[in-house]
């Protein structure tokens, strides 16, 4: 499925998350040239085909102001993104399904929601430059510390689970990122794909 020959991607991983590591590893194994950094490099090498911003929400990182971080990073990287006449570029932002609202993680939910709003605005802002901006909103994957938190106190709820037969894995998330990064996804921008085995469907906010 991949069409990745010699495409360069920068994975921004401020929290040093396991999900970012899995995404970088998957992209590298499918032919991308991958650089991973905690911060925006002062001088990225060569034009970038893609940027993945993974602030660590899915692994419970105590991130604050993730949307500000995203906007600042895009501003700095903008001169280095591959130009429209050369095929354009891709930005993919990782957030959590918690953005739909979750009682035990309101701060994380707010960060996720803000990232979605920022990404949609960036998609409109960068549309004419040939840069697409999309969001993967995932269920905290198998292995995430969030999955071990148990039931939120004083509620009737339990931790959301995939409706599909297998738990959501970091590989599933990496596969969704790879779809948005593909050169053939150039007419898809401002979108949010929930990689959650259907768990998002139970919220009206997911429409």
């Amino acid at each position: 499925m991949p069409d990745t020959a010699t495409r360069s991607v920068l994975v921004l991983d401020p929290a040093g998350s396991a999900t970012a590591q899995a995404i970088g590893s998957h992209l590298g194994s499918t032919g991308y040239g991958v650089d991973t950094a905690a911060e925006v490099p002062t001088d990225p090498s060569g034009p970038l085909d893609a940027v993945v911003f993974e602030p660590g929400l899915l692994d419970g990182a105590p991130t604050r102001n993730a949307a500000d971080q995203l906007l600042t990073a895009v501003e700095r990287l903008r001169p280095h993104l591959r130009a429209q006449q050369e095929g354009g570029s891709r930005i993919v932002v990782l957030t959590s399904r918690d953005g739909l609202g979750w009682p035990s993680r309101p701060a994380l939910a707010a960060e996720s929601g803000a990232l979605v709003s920022a990404a949609r605005s960036l998609a409109l802002q960068l549309g004419r430059t040939g840069t697409t901006v999309n969001v993967v909103a995932a269920l905290p994957p198998e292995g995430s510390p969030l999955r071990a938190e148990g039931r939120p106190e004083n509620t009737h709820l339990y931790e959301p689970e995939a409706l599909t037969p297998t738990p959501v894995t970091r590989q599933d998330i990496a596969d969704t990122v790879a779809f948005f990064l593909d050169a053939r996804s150039g007419y898809v921008t401002g979108q949010v794909l929930y990689c959650c085995g259907g768990a998002s469907l139970l919220s009206s906010m997911s429409v």
């Binding site: 297998t166 779809f179 898809v188 929930y194 085995g197 259907g198």
Partner: peptide, 11 residues
């Protein structure tokens, strides 16, 4: 690759 993606509307 999309086994964990369902019920989505992709524009």
């Amino acid at each position: 690759a999309s086994r964990s993606v369902t019920g989505q509307v992709l524009y």
